[in-house]
Simulated scan of single mutants.
Amino acid sequence: MKIEDALNESEKVLTPKRYAHVERVTETALDLVKKYQGNEYEVGLAAALHDYAKDMEILLLKQWILDHHDLPKDLLDYHHELWHGPVGSKMIQSLFMIQNHDIINAVRYHTTGRIHMTKTEKIVFLADYIEPGRDFPAVYEAREIAKHSLDRACHYALENSIHFLMSKEQPVYPDTFFAYNHLTKQLS
């Protein structure tokens, strides 16, 4: 599957606003690939498909989680905004026969992050956070950090995501804490 084909598939299932976000994430991710010598194909495909399940019905996402033994059931204890990554990773495997683990994991963990993220996963995670359509206080600093360090920018994004969720008294998915802790140890 080509990156353009992946974008076309995403466009079929997303609202125009969400699809415009996917285009910006893909562009941002491909810019980060050049800077950090990532795999252009893996990153481009994962970025183009990262929100594939985002606009799907909550009940459908829940059913996918219940039906797939390798998706953690504890996802259902957290906000449904987290569900589209893991479900989307299963959908792209099933619908498009994608077997590359870096692509699958980049889609799966693009919202939460995880411990031991690969370069592809980090780039897609960060591109989703800093794409030009985003406008919140921490994004400007994240963009600046991304010019110098992929790991520090991911760490900053994780830290700010945790702070944001805590300020709203929302639970934080454990993968986000694990990713933050892992990068904290790596960067110290």
Rank of each mutant, 00 (worst) to 15 (best):
V87T: 09
H80A: 14
L32D: 08
H110R: 03
I98D: 03
G88M: 04
M91G: 06
A47Q: 12
E42H: 10
T28L: 03
E42W: 00
V124W: 03
R108F: 01
K34Q: 13
Y109E: 07
S89A: 12
G85R: 07
R152E: 15
H84P: 04
D67Q: 12
V139R: 11
E81K: 10
D151G: 03
L95R: 15
E40K: 15
A29V: 03
A138T: 10
P132V: 01
R143L: 04
K34R: 13
K147E: 15
Y78F: 15
F125M: 08
N100E: 13
K62T: 14
L150S: 10
H148D: 11
A146N: 00
M56S: 13
C154N: 02
S149M: 02
A47K: 11
H84K: 01
H69E: 15
M117H: 03
E27I: 04
I58S: 11
E40R: 14
G88D: 07
N39M: 08
D70R: 09
N105C: 04
M56F: 14
L126S: 08
I103E: 09
D102K: 12
L30V: 06
A48K: 03
L75H: 08
E23I: 14
D67A: 13
I65F: 02
P72F: 09
V107L: 07
L126H: 04
R143N: 06
E81P: 00
L66F: 09
K122W: 00
V124D: 07
V124N: 06
H69V: 14
Y41I: 11
R114E: 08
D77W: 01
P132L: 01
N105Y: 11
A29R: 06
D31W: 03
L60K: 15
L76G: 10
S149I: 01
E27G: 13
K73L: 13
Y41S: 10
V43K: 00
E23K: 15
H68M: 09
